[in-house]
Structures are given as structure tokens and as C-alpha cells.
């Protein structure tokens, strides 16, 4: 187990380095955007003096490298600066939005992961059957359609033609939890449809991959029923690749939601990121991107640790 701890620490260290590189890339990418922040904040009617004062106030006259280093010094101490537009601290701007995104991602994940794995086991059991093909075609169709298109289809059928769920997922503070689930059902369902196929197909493939193993043949020759062969003998050895794909999709649920949030007008971090990029609000963009990057790094690390923990050879050393 000390090995696992070593791996975790090493990967966390590399993760911090990755975040540093990403922050540099984002900073200079935002620098390259055309236009002027002062102009964006004050609008077209601003006079030259106002703009000058604004630039002075935002520190835009300093060299880019200096501004980056200043930001970095703050970030290391946990201060990600203030929004250039609203002047509020970045953490204060992002926190509620990120919480919303996390909620939506968890909502989708709680449905998608079990559904995908159970479906994957069933199609592996009934491989080459009609059910297998239908499940494959359906999930492939849903993964191949763009999210916004899926979203609008769901709105059309589940909100407009049959008014079962609200089409707009705006939130208010006085909602009960059930209301919240109802309000955010359509965006969550859209995301479920997008991620289920990938996880289901990986579950199916990694189980079928094992079916030629001698120990699976042995299980069959012991008279074990087919479903038990799959669930008890194949699945426990198939976790590593499945966990990897689940982690990738969970990361996608958090970072890939921009379009879904726009379609359903959901106040998540994706929308905030889009708004901030158009306004060149560098501190917010930087913080959002770092959150996305950290999500990927942590989930991939979790997947690797999960793969180690499900391997009996590593779990029970000689």
C-alpha cells in the first residue's frame, strides 16, 4: 500500500506542475485576444481619459510577464485575484457556479454510471443478439449527436409536446431538493445520453475480451450459469479499463457541459467561462481553466488508484 501512496504523491506533484504550465498557456492566450479590456468594461461611450484611468486602475500598463508573476504570487497564497469586470473576488464569483456544475455532474453520473455498467454486462451476456445490436445502435446514435441537438430534441418531446419537465433550468434559492431534481432533469438526461454509450461499450468490450481466458472456460466447465460466469468471473477482472473510461467521462461531465448549460440556461461554470472569455476577464478564465485541468488530473489519478486497488495481485502481495 505504501507503493500506492508513493504513486499518488508523485502524480500530485506532476499535477501541480501541469497546472503551472496550463496557467502560463491560458494567460498568454488571453493576452493574444484582440481588443481592450478597459473598452469592454466601460463600453463604446467611454472617453480617452476614462479608458486611460481604467487601464491604470486594472494595472494593464504593466508588462504582461510582470502581471502574470503578480497573479502567480497571489494564486500560490490562495488569492486568485478579482474579476476585472465586477471587481468581486474570483473565488466568490466562481464558487456558487462551480457548485451548480458539480451538482449537475453528480446528478448525471449517479444515473449514467450504474446504467452503463449494468447495460454493458447485459449486452456482454446477450452478445450478438438483437438486444445487443439495438443497445449498440441506440447508444452510438446518442453519442454521435451533438449535445445541443440532443438537448433541443428532449425539450421538444419532454417539455413542449408533453409538458412533463421544465425546459429552462434556472435556479432559485427557495427550491426544495425534489423541485431541484425536476428542474435540472433535462440537462442531466442530455448528459447521461452523451456519456452512457462510451462506458457501456467499454464494459462490454473488456468483459468479452476476457471470455477466451482459461479461467472463464474453467468456470463454464464447472457448470456455472452464463450470467454468473460474466458477473462473478469476468467482471471482477475487467474493472481496470472500465474505471478508466468512467473517470474520463466523469471529467467530461464537469468540463464538457458548456453547450448543455447554454441550451438549458443553467447557471454553471461553463456559462461563466464563456462570458468571461468574451469579456477578456482574465482572472476568471484562468481560475475556471485551472479547475477544469485539476478535475482531469484528479479523476485520472483516481482511475489509476482504482485500477491498482481492483487488481488482486497488487492488493494481496505474495
Amino acid at each position: 500500500m505504501t507503493d500506492v501512496l508513493g504513486i499518488v504523491l508523485k502524480r500530485l506533484g506532476l499535477g501541480v506542475l501541469t497546472l503551472l504550465v496550463i496557467s502560463i498557456l491560458i494567460f498568454f492566450a488571453v493576452e493574444l485576444l484582440p481588443g481592450d479590456i478597459a473598452q469592454a468594461v466601460l463600453g463604446q461611450g467611454a472617453t480617452e481619459e476614462n479608458l486611460k484611468a481604467m487601464r491604470e486602475q486594472l494595472g494593464l500598463n504593466e508588462p504582461a510577464v510582470w502581471r502574470y508573476l503578480q497573479w502567480l504570487a497571489g494564486a500560490i497564497q490562495g488569492d486568485f485575484g478579482s474579476s476585472l469586470i465586477s471587481q468581486k473576488p474570483v473565488t466568490e464569483t466562481i464558487a456558487p457556479r462551480f457548485a451548480n456544475t458539480l451538482f449537475l455532474a453528480s446528478y448525471a453520473a449517479v444515473i449514467a454510471v450504474p446504467v452503463a455498467i449494468i447495460l454493458g454486462v447485459i449486452v456482454a451476456l446477450l452478445r450478438e443478439s438483437i438486444f445487443d445490436r439495438v443497445a449498440n445502435v441506440t447508444t452510438l446514435t446518442s453519442i454521435s449527436s451533438p449535445e445541443f441537438f440532443l438537448g433541443y430534441i428532449l425539450i421538444l418531446y419532454l417539455a413542449v409536446k408533453n409538458p412533463w419537465f421544465p425546459a429552462i433550468a434556472s435556479l432559485s434559492d427557495d427550491m426544495t431538493f425534489l423541485e431541484l431534481l425536476n428542474r435540472t432533469f433535462l440537462p442531466a438526461l442530455t448528459m447521461v445520453l452523451v456519456v452512457v454509450a462510451h462506458m457501456m461499450r467499454m464494459t462490454r468490450a473488456s468483459i468479452i475480451n476476457l471470455l477466451a481466458s482459461p479461467y472463464i472456460e474453467m468456470a463454464r466447465l464447472k457448470g456455472t450459469p452464463a450470467w454468473k460466469v460474466i458477473v462473478k468471473h469476468a467482471l471482477p477482472n475487467a474493472w481496470a479499463p472500465i474505471i478508466n473510461v468512467v473517470a474520463l467521462n466523469l471529467a467530461y461531465l464537469i468540463t464538457g457541459v458548456v453547450l448543455v448549460e447554454v441550451v438549458f440556461v443553467y447557471p454553471g461554470i461553463g456559462q461563466l467561462l464563456v462570458d468571461s472569455v468574451t469579456k477578456r476577464d482574465f482572472p476568471v478564465v484562468q481560475a475556471c481553466c485551472l479547475i477544469f485541468a485539476a478535475t482531469f488530473i484528479l479523476l485520472n489519478l483516481a482511475a489509476d488508484v482504482g485500477a491498482i486497488l481492483t487488481n488482486p495481485r497488487l492488493r494481496h502481495p505474495k
Binding site: 479461467y215 474453467m218 466447465l221 457448470g223 468471473h233 471482477p236 477482472n237 488482486p312
Partner: peptide, 19 residues
Amino acid sequence: RGSRIAYVAQSAAASFNPA
């Protein structure tokens, strides 16, 4: 199978389920 006719495979290391 397993009850009245049983099978012993060539490689026990591969034929026991590692999990």
C-alpha cells in the same frame, strides 16, 4: 459439468480466476 464430469486444465495458474 462440475458435478458428475470434472475438468483439470493444463495451466492451473491461468485456469484459476485471479480475483
